[in-house]
Every structure is written in structure tokens, then in C-alpha cells.
Design a protein around this nucleic acid. Structure first.
Length: 761
DNA sequence: AGGAACCTTATTTTT
DNA sequence: TAAGGTTCCT
């Protein structure tokens, strides 16, 4: 089992009891180490399968872990505590819903549900949504919860913040009333349950002797505290992660947890997995060199036994269209040489960039798949069906009620619902609970809807799950509605797919809550532990499943196609050939990141992730100009390109200036260095591929009145201070410049209007 | 209630 | 550019 592991991997797998941190570089066999350790612990009888707790971030990696485990050991993994933070917390809360103060059939809101609940609240409370945009409120609530803070614990340092706190409070009350919890609430509730209820806490602390965490660099503060609490009874924490691949700070992840964990738990027990089994030498060395520019690292240097392989190729084109065309041409020749299409990925920083690439691929007839669209359970028709199902389980779920009370149309309009809302508020009840208080025609219509729900609920008692859904789709009118739609076919298909998914779910997980424990295991589990009570119906389990696992985020597998995705979506994947596109200042690193604390370093980690996806060939491409927000923008080459030693790079188009993006850390510093004559470069067509319609590039710059503006120029503005021109567009008095100011970030100014002094060129 | 016209906005998104 | 949201008109 462990024979085929390298020395460090073996050391990690066979660590004795105690806390440990495994710094696992990209492609270093992280998952393998994690699963092998679990298997080793079980096989050497150090722990029963039920004394293990393994936490991941995605359902996919949880599944993979279980699959690998069953291939290593002849055990039944059902009933083991292996899952996502959210999945495990859900399990905990279902088992102890009473102690957690939740109804047994509480529903889980996904992000979209949460947002609509917030919008509804803001509207009902008459709050100014210009002052409190629902998205900001959502971020505030989730941010607070992720720090473990309830409304009364949040600092209220100004009026606006007090407003946010008040909304948070009302939102929480609304959730309680409706019996729903959001994602962050799952974690916070579970944390509070454990910290407040000593018997339950001690039970689980006793039970889990080994706690393993995957992707530790992505944990937020609350997750870390949850782990510490669970491990408080003497369990061993085994955390695996890579600080260099932390790219989710914007969602609350705190890389600092790694250093904290090393300091507080794993002191002297840190193992580095630095041998990379994925990438060839030049690629790996490039990535190493790049990430070395980050200051706050735990430190790690990947190496490979592979040869140096091919150099990293760099290609600069005049426009985004030409860049896309070049990428597609290169892909074509790779495919002609026999390379598998699905082993080729095109990556980009932001989704909007996929369009030109898709267009070029489409025109060339190459099949491709874009990852990251709507997921199955997020589709409109599926959410509608799920809303009906939720109402069967809990008619007080106002979010679901409002979603389908008039869908398909039943003549229940906004006016009626407003009255219903008022009545509900007056009575302190849910919308469903207030139906009878409305009279007249609208009252009758509401009662008819309530009657429909009652019927569906009644039938749900004796039908198996797939048939419940079929029934609901039929009798709710959804089926007829979509049959009448011109684009309805796909939607009907998805509804059928939902029925199938339920059938599969019942088959696979029908026993959820009643894990088939072996006799031995049963003895080690005390009566407190009722993970998933037997009283939980298949419908309830399925609804949890639907919320916690939104399904495939990607085009369905099948045809062998080029893979398109953002860098974020590529994390954890690998490809023979990777095209990293759009390597321009402002795009990558993204301009918004430059004003954020630690933003540039996170962008650099993102670039590191992108590069380390490639096994054999890595291409870095950029365009001098690109269409962005309906405007042509001119940008400098990304500084990341300057951070990779030339020895690893092969420029397919002439590399012109070494200054271009070399702003390094001293942004805004003088760069009037001798070699900086970007203009020349632009004037010289850099490849034969240049189109005759090549746009006027920024080289010549833009003349406004007396002044000649160019990209890269240092300028001074009376109000914004010193900055550098990073983009120019338009001509004459319509000309605009994107200027990166040292202190106030990037602004777009009209050159005809703004009073700018040229400081340096 | 539905549709057209208008305005605003634009990074990434495991659960 | 183009999507999403709002408002206004029928």
C-alpha cells in the first residue's frame, strides 16, 4: 500500500499520533497521501473507520477520497464521516436538530436563495436598497457568520454598519421563522452546537481520534475553529494544503490558518511534498520563479525527475481576436500532431474572455467545452420543481412559496401577494399560514394554491421519491407550461433528469442515516450518535442533497473537446497542454486586485495555479489591445511575464521591452528607463499573422492639445496624485486614458477634460 | 401581466 | 459589448 510512495509521502502517511501539517505542492500526490494515510490508520488498527473524520471542500474530492479508500481497503465506506464541511455540518445538525434549535426538516438555502430572501426582506422592511444593495448585505452577513459572529457581536462603528447589523438581525429572524439555513449558518450552527452542548461535544471529540483536512489553505476562520473544537478532546489533526495555491481569499479563506496551524499545533511536524509528478522542468521552474516573488510563504520548491522538457512559449498579438486566432491555430496543429483535444486547456482570468476564444474555436470547427456555466440544480426549471418539493416538506418556506405561487401563472399578482405579506407580518406567520385571512377573489386563488400543495403533500406520503417528483411536475402545471414554451424541450428534459437523479439517489443513498455498521463498529458508537435520523424521509434527504451538491458545473463529459475555463475552475486539474491567455496588466493581475490588501500576491498565486496545470506544454499569450466593456483597451504586458526568467521562456513573437510591465513592487515608481520605447515594438508587426486591419495602436499614443500621451507615461493629477497610463482609447477630444494611480487605484479619465501633467515618459 | 425601452454595470465563486 | 435589472407602456 505504501511501497510505491516516495520518502516524504511515506513519512506523511505513517506519521505517529499527533498533529501534523503537510505542505503539498501542486502535483505532489496530495490526495494519494491523504487517502493512503486513512487506509494505513485503519489497516494498522489505530482507528476504526468510524473514528476518522475527513473534511474536504468539494463533493467531488470527498467522493474521490471514498472511492480511493475503497480501492485500498476492503471496507464499506458507507456511514463514514467523509465529506465537505457543509455536508458534515448538515449531518450533525440533522442528528441533533433539537439541540441546535432547528426543525427536523430545515431547508438549506443556496447562495441564490439567500440573495432572494435578502431582497425580499429589504423590500418588506422598506429599506433603501441603494444604501444597502442586497449583494453587499449578503456579503456582510456571510462574512460575519464566517467569523463566528452573531448580529449582537458585530462591531457597530458607524450608522451604516448599524444598518447592516439590523438587517442581519431581521434576516436571521426570517430564517428562523421559515425554518431555513444558509450555507454559512450550517457551519456556525454546528459550531455553536458543539461549543455549547458539552455531552454532544465530548461525544464527538471522543469518537473522532483522527481528523484529516484537505485543501487546508482554503479554510475560513470559522472552519478552523470548528476543527480545533472537534480536536479538543485529543484527536490528531492532519492538515494537507498548499499556501501557494490559496486563491479564495475573496470568499473568506484565510491562508494565515496554515501558519497559525503550524505554530499552534504542528510545530516541528511539517512535511513538505516537493516532488512534482506532473510538469516538465521548464514549466515547473517558471512557476517556482514566479511564486518566489511572494513574500509571505511557508516556503517550498518543487522539483521533478522529468527532463526540462520544452520551454514555456510566449506569444504577443495585436488584438484579442488575433490572440484567439493564434491559440486556435496552435491547437489545430497540436491536434493534427495527434494530441487529444481534451488534454488541451485554454485558461483565462475572467469569464468574459471566453467569448473571443469560443468564437475562434467555433469558426474553426474544433469541438470545445466551457466549464463554469449554470449547474444542474441551479437551472430555473429544476429550482421551480424543487420549490414545490420543499413546500411539501415545509409550507412555511416563503422563498419557495413566492417562487412558485404564481408559476405557472395562476392569476396571483403582486398586489395579492403584498396583501398576503402584510397579513403574514401582522400575524407573525408565514405566507402559507396567512392564506385564510384573505377574502375575495384573490383569497380564493390563494386557497386553491394551498389546496394544490395539500394534495401534493398528501400524495407524497405514499409515493416513492421519483414518482413524487413526476407527480409534482405534472400537477403543478410545470409540465404543461414547458410543453407550451418554444424553448421548453430542454427544460422538460431537465425535469425528467431530475426524476432520474432522484431514482439514482434513492438507490445509492436510500439508506442515509442508517449506516450499515458492522457489529464491531456498532459497539464503538454510542446512542448519542444518530447521524441522520431514520425518520428523515427520502424527500428531505434529497432536498439537502440538491442544495449541498449543485451538480456538474461543466458541460457533460462525452465528446473529446478542448477545455475552456477560468483559472479558478482549473484548480486541481491537469492537462498536457495549457494556454494561459490574456497576460496583461489590468486583466491578470486584475486591476481590482491591486487595491486589495494582499491582492497582488493572490493574483500571483492564481498565475502559479494556472502554470502548474500544464504537464508538457505551457503557452502564455497576450494581446496589446482588447475589447473590454465595449471599448478597446490597450494594456501593458503582465508583470508576471517579467517575473519568469528568460531562460525558461521562448518568445514566439519578438520580446520588445524589458520594462513594459516591470513595475515590480514599487508601483508608480519611475520607469523612464532607457530601453522603454514601447512604440517601436508596436509599430513593427510582431508576427506575420497580423491582420491588415490592425487597429491603430497606442504607440503613437494620443495627442490632446499640446500634450502627447503614451502608455507607460508617468502622469500627475491634482486630485488623484501620481500614476501611470496603462491604457488609451479614442482619439482627439474623446480620448480616454486608464491610469493606475499610486494611491487611489485605476481610473479612467477623459484626456480632453482631466488636467494631467506629464511627469515622465 | 407581459413586453419594450432604458439604464447600469462589468473578477474570481469549492458549499 | 451584453446581460441583468427596472420602469414604463400597452
Amino acid at each position: 500500500m505504501i511501497g510505491s510512495l516516495n520518502e516524504q509521502q511515506q513519512a506523511a502517511v505513517t506519521l505517529p499520533e499527533g498533529h501534523a501539517l503537510v505542505l503539498a505542492g501542486a502535483g505532489s500526490g496530495k490526495t494519494r497521501v491523504l487517502t493512503t494515510r486513512m487506509a494505513w490508520l485503519i489497516q494498522t488498527s489505530q482507528v476504526s473507520p468510524f473514528g476518522l473524520l475527513a473534511v474536504t471542500f468539494t463533493n467531488k474530492s470527498a467522493r474521490e477520497m471514498l472511492t480511493r479508500l475503497s480501492s485500498l481497503l476492503p471496507i464499506n465506506t458507507r456511514g463514514m464521516w467523509v465529506g465537505t464541511f457543509h455536508g458534515l455540518c448538515n449531518r450533525l445538525l440533522r442528528a441533533h436538530h433539537r439541540d441546535a434549535g432547528l426543525p427536523q426538516t430545515f431547508q438549506i438555502l443556496d447562495s441564490a436563495d439567500q440573495l432572494s430572501a435578502i431582497k425580499r426582506l429589504i423590500k418588506a422592511a422598506g429599506i433603501d436598497d441603494d444604501k444597502y444593495p442586497p449583494r453587499d448585505v449578503q456579503r456582510f452577513i456571510n462574512g460575519s457568520k464566517e467569523q463566528g459572529l452573531r448580529p449582537e457581536q458585530v462591531d457597530a462603528w458607524d450608522a451604516h454598519r448599524r444598518g447592516l447589523i439590523s438587517i442581519y438581525e431581521q434576516y436571521q429572524a426570517q430564517c428562523e421563522r421559515e425554518g431555513v439555513v444558509d450555507f454559512a449558518e450550517l457551519l456556525l450552527r454546528a459550531y455553536e452546537l458543539l461549543s455549547r452542548n458539552a455531552p454532544i461535544r465530548e461525544h464527538y471529540q471522543r469518537r473522532f481520534q483522527h481528523i484529516l483536512i484537505d485543501e487546508f489553505q482554503d479554510t475560513n476562520d470559522l472552519q478552523y475553529r470548528w476543527l480545533k473544537l472537534l480536536a479538543g478532546g485529543g484527536a490528531s489533526l492532519f492538515a494537507v494544503g498548499d499556501d501557494d495555491q490559496s486563491i479564495y481569499a475573496f470568499r473568506g479563506a484565510n491562508v494565515g490558518n496554515m501558519a497559525a496551524f503550524e505554530r499552534d499545533y504542528a510545530k516541528g511536524n511539517v512535511i513538505r511534498l516537493e516532488q512534482n509528478y506532473r510538469s516538465h522542468g521548464h514549466i515547473l521552474d517558471s512557476a517556482n520563479a514566479l511564486i518566489a516573488h511572494n513574500a509571505a510563504r511557508l516556503g517550498k520548491n518543487l522539483w521533478t525527475e522529468e527532463g526540462e522538457g520544452e520551454p514555456v512559449r510566449v506569444c504577443e498579438q495585436g488584438t484579442d481576436l488575433l490572440e484567439a486566432q493564434w491559440v486556435v491555430d496552435e491547437i489545430k496543429s497540436l491536434v493534427n500532431d495527434g494530441h487529444t483535444r481534451s488534454d488541451i486547456a485554454v485558461l483565462y482570468r475572467s469569464n468574459a474572455q471566453s467569448r473571443v476564444i469560443e468564437h475562434a474555436l467555433f469558426s474553426s470547427g474544433l469541438p470545445y467545452k466551457v466549464y463554469g456555466g449554470l449547474r444542474f440544480f441551479e437551472r430555473q426549471e429544476v429550482k421551480h420543481a424543487l420549490a414545490y418539493l420543499r413546500l411539501i416538506t415545509n409550507p412555511n418556506d416563503d422563498t419557495s412559496w413566492l417562487r412558485v405561487v404564481n408559476f405557472p401563472a395562476r392569476g396571483i399578482g403582486a398586489r395579492t401577494l403584498e396583501q398576503l405579506g402584510d397579513a403574514a407580518r401582522a400575524a407573525g406567520s408565514s405566507l402559507y399560514g396567512a392564506v385564510d385571512s384573505l377574502s375575495g377573489k384573490s383569497g380564493l386563488k390563494l386557497q386553491a394554491f394551498a389546496e394544490l400543495l395539500a394534495q401534493l403533500t398528501e400524495q407524497a406520503h405514499y409515493l416513492p421519491l421519483p414518482e413524487i417528483i413526476e407527480h409534482v411536475v405534472h400537477h403543478s402545471g410545470l409540465r404543461d407550461f414547458y410543453m407550451g414554451e418554444k424553448e421548453g424541450e430542454d427544460r422538460l428534459e431537465n425535469l425528467q433528469e431530475l426524476v432520474n437523479a432522484a431514482a439514482v439517489f434513492v438507490g445509492e443513498e436510500g439508506m442515509v442515516g442508517e449506516p450499515a455498521l458492522s457489529q464491531a463498529a456498532r459497539e464503538t458508537v454510542d446512542p448519542l450518535d444518530m447521524a441522520g435520523p431514520p425518520t428523515m424521509s427520502p424527500l428531505d434527504s434529497f432536498l439537502s442533497h440538491a442544495s449541498l451538491e449543485a451538480g456538474d458545473n461543466q458541460a457533460r463529459a462525452g465528446e473529446d473537446a478542448i477545455q475552456l475555463m477560468t483559472v479558478h475552475a482549473a484548480k486541481g486539474l491537469e492537462f498536457d497542454s495549457v494556454f494561459m491567455t490574456g497576460l496583461e496588466e489590468g486583466l491578470f493581475p486584475h486591476e481590482n486586485s491591486l487595491t486589495e490588501q494582499g491582492g497582488l500576491e493572490e493574483e500571483r498565486r492564481l498565475m502559479y495555479v494556472a502554470m502548474t496545470r500544464a504537464r508538457k506544454r505551457l503557452y502564455l499569450t497576450l494581446a496589446q489591445s482588447r475589447m473590454l466593456h465595449g471599448q478597446t483597451r490597450y494594456a501593458m504586458r503582465s508583470r508576471f511575464l517579467e517575473e519568469i526568467p528568460d531562460a525558461h521562456l521562448k518568445w514566439l513573437t519578438p520580446k520588445v521591452s524589458t520594462m513594459g510591465a516591470a513595475m515590480g513592487s514599487g508601483m508608480g515608481s519611475s520607469w523612464s528607463g532607457s530601453g522603454y520605447r514601447r512604440g517601436d515594438a508596436y509599430n513593427r508587426p510582431s508576427t506575420g499573422a497580423m491582420s491588415p486591419r490592425e487597429p491603430r495602436l497606442a504607440t503613437s499614443g494620443v495627442r490632446v492639445g499640446e500634450k502627447q500621451f503614451r502608455i507607460g507615461q508617468g502622469v500627475h493629477h491634482a486630485k488623484f496624485g501620481d500614476g501611470t497610463i496603462i491604457g488609451l482609447s479614442g482619439m482627439g477630444n474623446d480620448a480616454q486614458a486608464q491610469i493606475q494611480f499610486r494611491d487611489v487605484g485605476t481610473k479612467t479619465l477623459a484626456l480632453g477634460v482631466a488636467k494631467l501633467d506629464i511627469v515622465s515618459s
